Simulated assay, not measured.
Amino acid sequence: MDDVVSLGASVMGAIVCPSVERWGTPCRVRHMAPDTDTTVATDTIVTVTDQARAKVLEIRGNEPEPESLGLRIEVVGASGVEYAYDLAFEALTEAAEGDSVVTTDGLPVIVPADSVDKLRGATLDLPANANQGGLVIRNPNRPDPLAGVELDLHGDIADKVRQLLDQAVNPMLAAHGGFASLVGVEDTKVFLSMGGGCQGCAVSAMTLREGIETQIRAAIPEVTEIIDVTDHDAGENPYYSE
């Protein structure tokens, strides 16, 4: 059962965030303003697993006045098909109007108003690999891959797909050492091949489904199906091989 937090205490000072080594991601120092009322939330935006909650509470215990602090989770941008996040301890009195503030088992989670829809349904957890430090956010939401991109598409489906790959898709994949190529078009079906760092990559299926496919369907609505014909066994990190 979630406990809804509504606090209005006046606190002065600064929050000292834990180190990168302990936290696994940079923290920002947030100064606390006096006489600031928090906003009450009625639903959970981000679910925190028991393991992640225990870790966060352990770290928070090393901070001054830990009971006055909540964990702020904010979307600060996008990197390819994923959002970028900032996690920091923040005074509960700093929550602004419209922010979500929900406490579960002693840990208040603050989600800024402009991050609520982007984080709704996400889960904060420890990495699956026990040797990997930090925390992970599993978020079912994705950024709009065409936001801010001005496209100039013309011609038939094949022409438009090639132009989209050149103008939007491959610049995104280049940051990860990969690229996508058009293999062919049959009626309204598009066949793509992925190369470079995307060939044999364990997350290339997600990249195709949630990145490239989303962009193609949004920019070229006449396309009905996108098929990956990449020989992933030939990649540097094949994940189809036995």
Rank of each mutant, 00 (worst) to 15 (best):
D3R: 15
V5H: 11
L7W: 13
G13H: 10
I15N: 10
V20I: 05
R22H: 09
T25H: 04
P26L: 06
C27P: 00
V29H: 03
T36H: 01
T36Y: 01
T42G: 03
Q51F: 09
Q51G: 05
K55P: 02
L57H: 04
E58M: 05
S68P: 02
R72P: 06
I73P: 05
D86M: 13
E90R: 04
L92H: 03
T93W: 08
A95H: 05
G98Q: 03
D99Y: 10
S100L: 09
V101L: 08
V102N: 02
T103W: 06
P108L: 00
P108G: 01
K118S: 07
G121W: 05
T123H: 02
A128C: 04
P140N: 02
A147F: 12
G148I: 01
L151T: 08
H154A: 15
G155N: 01
G155P: 05
R162S: 10
R162N: 15
L164W: 11
D166N: 04
M172S: 11
L173K: 05
H176T: 11
G178L: 07
V183F: 13
M194C: 09
G197H: 07
S204L: 07
T214M: 08
I220L: 07
E222D: 15
E225Q: 12
E225C: 05
V229Q: 15
T230L: 09
A234I: 06
E236W: 11
Y239F: 15
